[in-house]
Nucleic acid binder design. Structure first.
Lengths: 147, 147
DNA sequence: CTGAGTCAGTTTACTTTTGGAACTGATATT
DNA sequence: AATATCAGTTCCAAAAGTAAACTGACTCAG
């Protein structure tokens, strides 16, 4: 299977991974959520090769996850910003981050805490059911194939 | 940067990606959550090369995400099962799946629905704050660097 | 006006990873 | 005795990734 074939699978997870499932993409998005927007800033932050960065940014723009827009004329320069579709990936990053905090944090705890503007507290993400609001775990769910 | 250097970054997201952030791993885990356990079954389901599959399964076992255990002697055969650490990745998969459902589903809707055993309804995952229970979006959160 | 600096890429030459197909070995089945 | 099952391993060509140098449009300091 070639990687792009994933996009044509019916599975939504496969389609999602076709867009953001490669080695660099989620790190690029992490930075994007931390307000990194410019080519050289991504490069400095990630130690990614410039060629890969070019390629990944273009792919994310093509997917509609990032938007490339000019921030200065003369010389023309562009920055990369999250679209709505990109912002919608936040729960994915939060979930992964929380898993990392739980299983890989040093003795002195995770290096970054997240504060909820709403209630002012440090928090972690809890996945809940859209219908009843209960907390969800792997064992609480049955998958049902449609059509 | 080499891929393994990620494990030594302080960022929990980087560490998480070092364990499960490559092209095949999340697809393998998807199958694992759908009760696929054996080498040949993973291979048939994924169209992955046998060499890659061997390597990824070993890496996941080394990380403690999967457990390799015999299910038959004579001839000795092993199967791969999710550990607690592996099961804890469920929210990540759910979040990615939901994003895929939202942005890539066909006109006739997503191919798989998820039913919550607790309330009996089809649902999607809603990320909420562990402290106040409110729904979380990218704009509701401030990241704070520690020590 | 000159030379250095900024920014966002491209190009080049090289190394590493991956895919695919064939092979292995222990055992079971016909 | 020949074929099948299962879980890998081995080999080689092709694809993908890296680092470093190069480009081009401009700005700015002296």
């Amino acid at each position: 299977m070639k990687w792009n074939d994933l996009a044509s699978e019916r599975c939504s997870l496969a389609r999602a991974l076709s867009a953001v499932g490669d080695r660099w993409t989620l790190l690029i998005l992490r930075d994007a959520f931390l307000k990194v927007r410019r080519f050289d800033d991504f490069e400095a932050s990630l130690k990614i090769s410039r060629r890969m960065l070019t390629e990944r940014l273009q792919a994310l723009v093509a997917e509609g996850v990032l938007e490339r827009r000019p921030y200065r004329e003369r010389p023309l320069r562009h920055e990369y910003r999250l679209t709505e579709k990109g912002l919608a990936l936040y729960p994915v990053l939060l979930a992964l981050l929380h898993w990392g905090d739980n299983w890989y944090a040093d003795a002195d705890g995770p290096p970054v805490r997240h504060r909820h503007k709403g209630c002012g507290q440090h928090f972690h993400m809890v996945p809940t059911c859209s219908e009843c609001g209960e907390v969800l775990g792997a064992r609480d769910v049955v998958a049902e194939r449609m059509g």
